[in-house]
Amino acid sequence: MRPDLHHLFRIDKLPHIWCPGCGHGIITRTIGEAIAESDLDLEQTVIVSGIGCSSRASGYMNFDTLHTLHGRALAFATGVKLSNPQLNVFVLTGDGDATAIGGNHFIHAARRNINLNVILFNNNIYGMTGGQYSPLTPTGKMATTSPYGNIENNFDIPALAIASGASYVARGTAFHDKLLVDCIKEGIKNKGFSLIEAMSMCPTSYGRRNKMGTPADMLNDLKTSAVNINVAKKLTPEKLEGKFLIGTLHHKPYREFTEEYDKLIDRLRKEDI
């Protein structure tokens, strides 16, 4: 039995504005579910988002929420967390928001290992502005700005996060929603920068242009292209060709930024005395 989440959403703001077949609604529910199952104090929880389809999610969630500037959600969230490290701070962002216009904030927030829970909705496109390619549009795929196919290479978001210093990194999909809930819950438990890449789908601005079929077909693609990391360990490289890994990809807790900051303040206060 999945939990009743009505109290976590602004019911008067529903139905949402995402297109039929969009994966973002499923992902937004998983965030609510992970929060409900993690026993968080809802009064001490803040949700910060940037700009784009992903970042509409904060508007539907019944918390203290901030809908900030394009690419800057992590910068705002860093300020929120530093001002009161006791708060549970979630950041909802997208592939364009977090890795293009906000790429710098992304690597530096990860580098500091600041205790934020980041859910990155990856729909492989700038959906809200009508389908321009993002750093996560796969090479070769069509977008309004790549009518002959995208010639650029993509970020590997988990690899980028790990290399930058994130202490918890996982990936789920709109199909593997239960796994996504578990990953977000692990991220909440982790004291440090937690990055969960949530693979979504955009039938309107990406799927249609790339002849990917119905939203159900796209959901099925997520199902068949994803391989759980525990299963992948037993598979040969040939079998993993064209697949992507899901589950907890990295978990290595180490010194967290707001704690180190508090320690510094304590130390200097003592030295002054």
Binding site: Y126, M128, T129, G130, Q132, T144, T145, P147
Partner: peptide, 17 residues
Amino acid sequence: AAYPITPQTVIVEKISE
């Protein structure tokens, strides 16, 4: 040089066509 933002996006989109 193009970057999308409503309500300008149609300009750079049309140019890309």
